[in-house]
Design a binder for these strands. Structure first.
Lengths: 218, 218
DNA sequence: CAACCTAAAATATGATCAAATTATGGATTG
DNA sequence: CAATCCATAATTTGATCATATTTTAGGTTG
């Protein structure tokens, strides 16, 4: 048995299933509107029923899944109104988190962000949608971690879980080439230690993405 | 079998357990730091293991419970830093929700709020902590519902779940007599249709409560 | 077109296995 | 001789699974 297997064996099955399913939703592998069945997951992930159930309830609580009245669970379809709400919340959260992250940035954090942004650019050039979505998320997730504000980070990640599936749809239509971001502005501001400018760049970056989703839903 | 029992029987056991446990946490019946065991709940609520498990995962995802590394689940203890984070998020959310609620207020909503505030005052006079906490929550919950913004309402309720247990501790120490609120200001502004003033009153009300918790934690 | 029937899926229980905490008793030390 | 510490046993609790029951959806028949 390898070391990796030993470490993973320490994680409960419900935790493993949760993470797996979460990533699949986050990167749009399960489309908005699509049903998620317990039995389907037990087969697909080779897990028992109870752990699968627990993972589904957890993701439902986070808004990543929606419990229909009739025992059905689906990946929710976002409405234009939903996006407005998400924008309101993110405007506040993304600004605050970027501000705090800048004040606490360590060299290895900046190095990670620069490196991730590079990988992101490469994914855009290659047109690799999956890699684009993943690196983009890792970039912002790192900022959340840096902020040393677990509750705010939880809220921000929870929102990501809500619009993630739609983002995939948007990017699939628009194409990775046409996805502008403000990461360069953000990084230069953060390197300069300018928390306010970093916050502003992060909010603008967020708004660009949300705008794309908004256009699609209209 | 009564009608009520028939209707409740339609709700899945995991949903019933979830609601029950959620209320108990919300109104501080389970103290911060206290452990929540699966077997304890199966006995106390007369439910099976799987539904209890699902309810716990759901509440863990909402931040109402915390999963310790060693398989233990507790009601989290708030730190002073946590409160700061909650304040940042609530400043944004409570303002927006009150604004939207005012714009959409129907006569029966206002009637409910006035009535609930009356019950709240009575609870204060009687020194009935449990009733105070419950009516206070129902008051604000109604505002969330009125706002017609399910995602923002989810976020606001989720935060309530985080500070609820601490609020109980605070009120237990301070006594219900010494708990000022801004509900009268809020109601008069809302009745006048002044969304901005309602928002301001709601944020002030929130801050008064958070301030109490902050003082206790210092 | 409605009522019924069948198949599939979800709910829920209890049994079983594994892990962790607590309790116990003996050895060691001051 | 009493107190402390450590190792080990016992008990409690969590994790997982297999299975029985209930519910729903969809197709079929009158």
């Amino acid at each position: 048995m390898t070391v990796v297997e030993t470490v993973e064996a320490r994680l409960p099955a419900h935790e493993v299933v949760y993470r797996e399913l979460r990533e699949q939703i986050l990167f749009g592998e399960i489309a908005p509107g699509q049903a998620v069945t317990i039995q389907g997951l037990t087969e697909r992930l080779g897990a028992g029923m109870t752990p699968v159930r627990e993972a589904i309830r957890r993701l439902t609580a986070e808004g990543a899944l929606k419990f229909q009245g009739n025992r059905r669970v689906i990946v929710p379809l976002l409405s234009a109104k939903n996006i407005e709400e998400i924008i309101v919340a993110r405007k506040c959260l993304e600004g605050e988190l970027a501000r705090r992250a800048t004040e606490r940035a360590k060299p290895e954090d900046l190095q990670f962000l620069v490196q991730t942004d590079k990988l992101l650019d490469q994914a855009i050039v290659k047109g690799d949608l999956q890699a684009y979505l993943e690196h983009n998320f890792r970039f912002h997730e790192r900022i959340y971690d840096m902020a040393d504000a677990p509750i705010l980070a939880d809220l921000a990640e929870g929102l990501w879980l809500r619009f993630g599936p739609s983002l995939r749809v948007v990017c699939g239509r628009v194409g990775t080439q046409n996805l502008p971001d403000k990461h360069k502005d953000l990084l230069s501001a953060m390197q300069a230690g300018d928390a306010e400018r970093t916050a502003q760049a992060n909010v603008e970056d967020m708004m660009q993405g949300m705008e794309q989703v908004r256009i699609m839903l209209a």
